[in-house]
Nucleic acid binder design. Sequence first.
RNA 1: GCGGGAGUAGCUCAGUUGGUUAGAGCGCCAGGUUGUGGCCCUGGAGGUCGUGGGUUCAAAUCCCAUUUCUCGCCCCA
Length: 420
Amino acid sequence: MMAEYAAPRGTRDILPAETQKWQYVESVFRDMCALYGFEEIRTPTFEHTELFVRNLGETTDVVSKEMYNFETKGGRKLTLRPEGTAPTVRAYVTHNLGAVLPVNKVYYIARIFRFERPQAGRYREHTQLGVEVFGSIDPALDAEVISFAAGFFREVGIDQFELKLNTIGCPKCRPEHRKALLDFVESRLGDLCETCRDRYERNPLRMLDCKEERCQAALTDAPVMIDYVCEECRDHFAKVRAYLTEMAIPFVLDNKLVRGFDYYTKTAFEFVSGELGAQNAIGGGGRYDNLVEEIGGAPTPAIGFGLGLDRLLLTLDAMQVQLPLQPRNAVFVAGLGEAGHEAAVKTVCGLRKNGVAADMDYTGRSLKAQMKVANKLGARFVVIIGDDEIAGDTVTLRDMSSSEQKSLPTSELVEYIKSR
RNA sequence: GCGGGAGUAGCUCAGUUGGUUAGAGCGCCAGGUUGUGGCCCUGGAGGUCGUGGGUUCAAAUCCCAUUUCUCGCCCCA
């Protein structure tokens, strides 16, 4: 039983029984994107390492310890994409999409790679569905992206989730908050965990959402961004909240919410599901108004959202949501004996040529065994062809749900099935 | 990187204080219908008990190592 090879740690095979669900969710996502005006973009699976190192932030967990890096023979450093936004921005800049349209709205379905210890809902290779909007700082767009996300979750069957919302300011107002935070923490540095003492030096904002109890206790009254944001950010955030309220999208303000990458500005949000164990974040996103410029494009405000498809499906499973998967609705052709088999090959070929999904047996089984296979495949009709049928140039057609059976001329088969 | 749990048939698992040919349910195959699915009945195939070593007359069972999976911490989707 122990096969010689297994899928590498943190990866897994998605078998046909599961891919149906994946395709369904992806199609809901694509439909939703069409409704909101997002068009698909596909970027390479790997990018230059520098793209991620410089733009996600060197101190982030992803960059400092979770990237799949490799070198080409020529010594170029490449990395399997650990997130979807930076590559999308890179493509936007590479092709100067800002010159084509004032506002560009794109979506992607991409495999993401992070070298972490796998556990429930966390894989080294996972799939993210995401959208990005370039070219406007209108808070209505923040609300649109968030409502897109919330709408998508509901559409696919998840109505139990919490939307956490925060603003993390901009380069104008962040330094002031940072200074206040450092001042506040300085005297309590001893109470913090080792990681946070390190963060104090390298990435103070991240101390705020540390999960360590001692840190949470020590930082209860720490200065939060919302009290330090500049007028523009405060105004922007107020409008986002107003839009969401108007759209009847419930949210919870979380002034300790900090996103994992350095490029975020202003609006930050996260969707949390209680159905998953430790990995409860099913999606998240935020604004990144300076990233396009940092990557080399013209100053262009932008906002995006990404969700983990693997986790979404786990959540749907945990919630026992029944997805409306389409039955196969195909025709199975059962041939009896050698002549019947030959006739079946011809019949299947003819059905397919006319756009009717059809399949047959290739293992020389008895009619009974072929019927069982047809049943298991969920065939709607079974066409039976034996010596009797061949002699009269007819086929026997069995409706698998009603068990009704009738004989009809071979020449009428395709038309009859198409009319059903 | 750190900590817990588990590896017995395709799947989910049982296996009593170590003791003959290692079991069940589901699935699979065949028969019960000389050409007919779902339900039912009967039979069958399928396992070097993760791997290596040790203890013992005897190991799926005890000990050690190793490996894989899994859950959690950190962090994220």
